[in-house]
């Protein structure tokens, strides 16, 4: 590790607070597993021993929204469920990110039918759209890495008490 080597040489390092904040934020993303249907099983597989999300610092799946900063919406969102999803999203503290896992969450997918919301971006700001029905666990890990890169590009002053939807920096990255 570069950090320990640095410490034995000089005993200190210089960095920007922004960079330090972004680095610590991205290395411990706590996901909120919004498991709704089939994709939730693949999300469980990601937490399981074979794919092991702990390698990326995100094994702390918290079922309460108050402790999370990444919502993984895994499964078909119906109109009845959309109010619940939105409510849980609102309870999460800023800054927060959203992965739309799977085809039906992103666009309605194979469900062109009356109860299904045709894409959760109609009521949520989505950061990553994940293809697949359901996506393979490797694909979810890839999405997590991309979210981490995105978080790494953010700056501390991006989050000055504004709701996420108003922040151009994050939306355009």
């Amino acid at each position: 590790m570069g950090l320990e080597a640095k410490l034995t040489q000089d005993g200190f390092l210089t960095t920007k607070i922004d960079a330090l904040l972004a680095w610590s934020r991205k290395s411990s993303v706590w996901p909120m597993p919004m498991g709704i249907s089939c994709c939730a099983i693949e999300m469980m597989a990601v937490g399981g021993p074979k794919y092991d999300i702990a390698r990326f610092g995100s094994e702390v799946m918290r079922f309460t929204p108050r402790q999370c900063d990444l919502m993984i919406v895994a499964g078909t969102v119906t109109y009845k469920m959309s109010h619940v999803v939105k409510k849980i999203y609102d309870q999460m503290p800023d800054p927060k990110w959203v992965i739309a896992m799977g085809a039906c969450t992103s666009s309605g997918g194979m469900y062109r039918s009356y109860p299904v919301v045709q894409g959760i971006d109609q009521f949520l700001p989505v950061d990553i759209y994940l293809a697949g029905c359901p996506p393979r666990p490797d694909n979810l890990l890839n999405a997590l890495i991309q979210i981490q890169e995105k978080i790494g590009r953010t700056k501390g002053r991006d989050f000055q008490n504004k709701p996420l939807s108003e922040l151009n920096v994050i939306q355009n990255n």
């Binding site: 709704i36 499964g75 119906t78 009845k80 469920m81 039918s113 109860p115 299904v116």
Partner: peptide
């Protein structure tokens, strides 16, 4: 129930 009603029978 009904939070995951996807209209299978109609489809």
């Amino acid at each position: 129930l009904g939070y995951l009603h996807r209209g299978y029978e109609k489809m």
